[in-house]
Design a protein around this nucleic acid. Sequence first.
DNA 1: TAGGTATGTTTACAGCGGAAACATTGATCG
DNA 2: CGATCAATGTTTCCGCTGTAAACATACCTA
Lengths: 198, 198
Amino acid sequence: MLEKKKKYHHGDLRTALVVAGLEILEEDGLDGLTLRAVAKRVGVSHTAPKNHFDGVKALWTAIATEGFWLHAKAMRDGVTSGATRDDKLRAAAAGYARFASEHPALFQLMFSPALCEHRDAALGEAASASYAVLREISAGLDWPGAEGPARQERTEWMVWSLVHGYAMLAISAQFPTGESGAPRHDVLSVMPKFGYPD
Amino acid sequence: MLEKKKKYHHGDLRTALVVAGLEILEEDGLDGLTLRAVAKRVGVSHTAPKNHFDGVKALWTAIATEGFWLHAKAMRDGVTSGATRDDKLRAAAAGYARFASEHPALFQLMFSPALCEHRDAALGEAASASYAVLREISAGLDWPGAEGPARQERTEWMVWSLVHGYAMLAISAQFPTGESGAPRHDVLSVMPKFGYPD
DNA sequence: TAGGTATGTTTACAGCGGAAACATTGATCG
DNA sequence: CGATCAATGTTTCCGCTGTAAACATACCTA
């Protein structure tokens, strides 16, 4: 029997729904990411997801969670090839912004509290993994204003805010764009050149 | 006649709808901002907005536009009281972040390309007014990496990215919060202390 | 004062998320 | 091995949403 028999049970519907959701985000953006559209793409009735997700927001949250893992990976890939700590920092920043510009709808979803449940444990874990990349790399960075309490955490927040703000503004079409449609300046040319003291 | 007579025509429905939308955003967040809910609050049929807005997204865009004007005002208010340019910069940053934390749903709407039309002329004008505050204040700021082409624009983008990123991460509940529910560090404590050379 | 246009209403409809009742599968346990 | 039951998927129905079309009212101007 060459034809794959259509089974009543899917096998791994939960994963399939998340994957389908990611694909829809790439093709149609956030507007197309409806429960019914995701179910239809998988070839399943629109109420089948109910067995795996408690409502659309739970599905969105699961998709965002997968997004955070991909996001962390995108950053880490560039980092490993960096020679100095500064190279690594800039590679992470570039990876952060590139991910946002390549997957704008997914990125928007990941950081929309109205769309996904940020108190979800799995989402938190994935987001932490993404954050951890910046955290490790920014450790020990020196910048004017760094001295004071909670220096390390404030350093992380400073770097994260800068890079995240650039990424968000870029996909929100707030930056004037050049001929290519991309912003006239990339993240790196907008990042202050701080140093590592030791 | 003490009772205000209900007129068939509203008089300034367009403005009333935008105001009602802003109120709903404060009370119920983005989820409650439906066309029907806005119309109902104004006391008008749910198709009446069609005469003033070409679809929900146009209404959302108009609400976001008003948000940008309020946002600009919130920043400017603090700025005028600042003595030095550095004081003004920090006041603008604080105003930027405070506006986001006080009106999270509106702020989210303002920067969601999936929800409002960023190519809209009126929106662009209001957004520019908001941007102009940071633009004026960051002019001449010195920072490591500033030298090079398009120095002034890159300076604006750097400041904007930093402040905007902080604001977005704060309302996305990405920052660990203290007991009050607010982030443990405010914008100012994660803003590098750059100076003005002259 | 007459007629046209701007503005608002009513009605209808398709798409959405969710609930409930039902069908099918697969796993557990005698 | 067979019966039962939980897990998973379907069907059907509901209320809510945005949109369109036909209609009603009020204003404005010639």
